[in-house]
Amino acid sequence: MSASQNLIDSALFISQGAEAASIFLLPVIFSPDNDIDSIGQKVYKAQLTSNSSPILLKHRFQKQYRHPTLDASLTRSRIAGEARTLLRCLRAGVNVPGIRMVDATNGVLGIQWIEGESVRKLLPGEAEGEDNEEVDLLQEYGISIDEIMNLVGTEIAKMHKADVIHGDLTTSNMMIRPIKSSQAELILIDFGLAFQSTLTEDKAVDLYVLERAFLSTHPDSEPMFASVLAAYEQRMGNDWAAIKSRLDDVRLRGRKRSMVG
């Protein structure tokens, strides 16, 4: 038995798949971009010592259908990739959860537990019949929808400036964390599909994926997404023109490039 396995056994199971699901076990959302890999992990809430803050454990468990050697090396490289991307974001000042432990041998990544709510739950259009819930939450967090959109655009721009592509931008993968005596902050989470790239194409596709996620989870959200792009544009400065024209191309053809030629 390994130490990390003991830690998992004593932890609170939260979900299989997406990182942003809350303890109430929401139905896990499979966006079109979630490949098998991002489903192949379990998420827990745990504590390393009795008086420390809680952490979130992501366990990439062993896959029986893969050869053990291949499995170990894939798991290791994915944990490493996610950790490196997070560190790169932290270096660039992007709001992401801090890393708390890494055990690549056992496929465990421990990150800071974020107290807050996902942007998805704060925006209208979640489930029918609970219309007032978002309004209450927005009030409780002391933030308006417009301010959230502004934070979303700014944070993505900061991330893209560091040449990090998230790969799975959805409103579920953004958390709002309230701060005492100041405006709440937005934290990007779940870098399981993230990678590094300087290409305009990748940044445009990242935005396109978010646009699709917005439109499919939140009805009538075109104006919201427009203000995300406005904030993004402001932060990106000169790089925006190229990304914008590429985004228009991507909208016409979809996220996959043509395989012809």
């Binding site: 950790a83 490196r84 997070l86 560190l87 932290l90 801090g98 890393i99 708390r100 890494v102 690549a104």
Partner: peptide, 9 residues
């Protein structure tokens, strides 16, 4: 803190 935690990878 993050740099220390991810040292092994």
């Amino acid at each position: 803190i993050s740099a220390v935690a991810m040292k092994t990878v």
